[in-house]
């Protein structure tokens, strides 16, 4: 009965709010998805943070600082949405530290040159935008509102990345090579960000029925590829996929087979930077312990 009412609301495009009745599976799916999303924003600060002190100009440095600060903000919006489901921030952090909660595998790849800042903004944020635009219509109210806020801020991220790529692609021979190399390394991991094929994604069914997800992994991936190919061509870079071809009939690009062994390898902890990213997060959290204690002690003193 309750479940029928719940589904009726979902089918009528109404939002579910924290105090509304919801199936346990809906709640746990949301906690897993939103926390993974939040952790991705926070872990995602590391590969870019790596370049703040090495940015090639003051302008580039100010932009990168603002972008990394935005990522922290996005993480916090999402933790905030996740907490409305009845899980604490401490528990979310501890799930991350124990490896029970995941974050996007893309952040387990290293950032080797300045062009990687371009590739991340253009491709990684670009892929995230495609996903997040569709999630603005997710059925859970707090998640949906968080997505609206994030989408408003995110387009600056993608544009700043594309600007870097465009400048380098039109720069010296070395700069163009760096840009192409960054595209070569980030292209496949970016299209893997959408997750496994729908046929290998057992949770997609419920997520679509409950309207947590509004488009499937494969639909989102195709949207992203169709948007991005022309952008690469415009700045004279080549997407590293020999099978990429316009399909007149589908009005979409056909593309090559994704290396799923690599994908699962990185998801399961064997990417180039998994250990480094997680250890850094744990260290930052532990190093911040005294600050949290001091803030608490100060507040208690004010109140006494």
């Amino acid at each position: 009965m309750q479940e029928q009412l719940f589904q009726k609301k979902i089918d009528a495009e109404q939002k579910i709010e924290p105090k509304d009745w919801m199936p346990d599976g809906y709640r746990s799916h949301l906690i897993r998805q939103i926390s993974q999303h939040a952790h991705s924003e926070i872990i995602g600060m590391q590969p870019e943070g790596n370049w703040i002190t090495r940015a090639p100009s003051l302008r580039a440095k100010m932009i990168l600082l603002a972008k990394v600060q935005d990522e922290a903000g996005h993480g916090l919006y999402l933790y905030s949405a996740c907490e409305t489901l009845g899980i604490s921030r401490d528990e979310l952090n501890s799930q991350l530290h124990q490896g029970k909660a995941k974050y996007s595998s893309i952040f387990n790849y290293p950032t080797l040159s300045w062009a990687d800042m371009g590739a991340i903004g253009w491709l990684v944020d670009g892929a995230a935008i495609v996903n997040q635009v569709s999630l603005q219509k997710t059925s859970y109210g707090p998640y949906s509102r968080g997505m609206v806020k994030i989408c408003k801020e995110e387009s600056f991220h993608q544009r700043q990345g594309y600007e870097i790529m465009s400048e380098m692609a039109n720069g010296t021979k070395e700069q163009k090579e760096m840009a192409q190399d960054a595209l070569n390394r980030f292209w496949w991991p970016s299209i893997m960000m959408f997750g496994p094929h729908d046929s290998d994604s057992p949770r997609t069914g419920n997520a679509m029925k409950w309207k947590i997800k509004r488009k499937t992994n494969d639909e989102l991936r195709q949207d992203f590829i169709d948007k991005t190919v022309a952008q690469a061509e415009l700045i004279g870079l080549k997407i590293p996929d020999p099978d990429l071809k316009w399909n007149e009939e589908r009005s979409s690009y056909d593309f090559g087979e994704i290396n799923w062994d690599e994908f699962w390898g990185v998801v399961n902890g064997n990417g180039p930077c998994n250990e480094q990213r997680l250890n850094h997060h744990i260290k930052a959290h532990e190093d911040g312990e005294w600050v949290r204690k001091a803030a608490k002690a100060y507040a208690e003193k004010q109140n006494s």
Partner: peptide, 11 residues
């Protein structure tokens, strides 16, 4: 608009 964690009102 949302919420924040903080120990006291200034924070």
């Amino acid at each position: 608009v949302g919420n924040v964690h903080a120990e006291d009102k200034e924070m």
